[in-house]
Amino acid sequence: MSTTESTPEVITDESAEGAPQRPWRDRKRYLWPLATVMPAMPFLGAGLSAATGWAGWWWVGPMILFVVLPALDLIFGATDDNPPESERERLEADRYYRWVTYLFLPIQYASLVFCCWVWATWDLPWHADLGLALTMGVVSGVAINTAHELGHKREDVERWLSKIALASSAYGHFYVEHNRGHHVRVATPEDPASSRLGEGFWTFLPRTVWGSLRSSWHLENKRRSKGRHTALDHEILVAWAMTVVLFVTLVAVFGWVVLPWLVLQAVVGFSLLEVVNYLEHYGLKRAKRDDGRYERTDPRHSWNADHTVSNLLLYQLQRHSDHHANPLRRYQTLRHFEESPQLPSGYGSMIVVALFPPIWRAMMDRKVLAHYDGDVTLANIHPRKRERYLTRYART
């Protein structure tokens, strides 16, 4: 691995007058590879099951995401520390951080092949096979996050790696819709990936899946209408073809028995992405300017979660406000902003809450209202709930 070296800025510790000066260092530098634990979860489940004889370990993916990760977030808490802006160029030029994301992909695909081998050749009870499918689904869902990090970059190799990471979840159109659709329309009623105040997750899910698919197709056709193109450079068709080739190859090698599990893990994977989308912009809305256009996206338009452990494992996805305000920033330089609204906990906990809409609304509606200083008219309200919310939270 090569790194670009430059002389780090000398940062003064201002907590004590006359204290010695020291160069700034990324204290999490050698913790970022912990993100590779996530794609290795099927191997972990197999090892623990073999060691203990308990088939429940095949469910290790949901266990880690929804139990272990929230517990670690509770133990280690959140951090609002930011790298100095003067260090951004040096950090983003350091290729070590890029290789941390690249390493995710070979482990992801090794896990997928391993899962197919287990489904095809091991005599597991049905609930163990189901657990393995859900575990692989978590891997594919987290892989979409890796694709998200890679897909925003200008380098061709990273963009191609992003498409490869998306193939296992059959969600290749995300590459088009997220970059050219969601980032343009985020926190507006027109964005299918921005959830609305009062909208439950199970209502949001079909709206965002269908809306994002339709939007991505429209955006890609619009791009292609501006020049001469062939089917080989249709970004959505190429991405879907990668999934077809992947699944056909796996079925050819391991048999038809693996196909239902492949489909199930893909559905779990992209559903995991969409529940994260649900968390990230719930009820938030960009105001319109006098000319009728929306104001520029800034840190007020995304929910943040500064929890240390989950940010290490998710390439700081939870510092979502800075990502939307500055989409080209790499994960190691994303910042906390005081004006960003904060989720009560990390994504692992909040995903579980989102699956139960009454609990979610009881927890989050008041936070949306507080973010807008009690003026509910500033929020992105679900149209079917608009009159109810305006009546309930009317200002007197």
Rank of each mutant, 00 (worst) to 15 (best):
T4E: 14
I11R: 03
S15K: 15
G18S: 10
G18I: 11
R25C: 05
D26I: 11
W32N: 04
P33C: 12
L44P: 04
G45I: 11
W54L: 13
A55W: 15
G61Y: 01
P62W: 07
M63H: 04
L65V: 14
P70V: 13
T79W: 06
R90K: 13
V100M: 03
F104D: 00
A110Y: 08
F114A: 08
A120L: 11
W122Y: 12
D129I: 01
A133S: 09
M136R: 01
I144C: 09
K153Y: 06
R154L: 05
W160C: 05
L166S: 04
L166Q: 07
F174R: 01
G181I: 00
H183D: 01
T188K: 07
E199W: 02
F201I: 09
F204C: 02
L205Q: 05
V209L: 15
L219C: 01
L219S: 00
H229K: 03
L237A: 13
A241L: 14
F247N: 11
V248W: 09
V258C: 06
L259V: 11
W261P: 03
A266W: 01
E274D: 15
V276N: 02
L279E: 02
G283W: 02
K285F: 04
K288L: 14
E295F: 09
R300P: 08
A305I: 11
A305P: 05
D306A: 14
N311Y: 05
L317S: 01
Q318V: 07
L328G: 13
Y347W: 10
V353Q: 10
W360H: 14
A362W: 15
A362Q: 11
D373I: 08
D373E: 13
L378H: 13
I381P: 03
P383W: 06
E387L: 09
Y389S: 09
A394S: 14
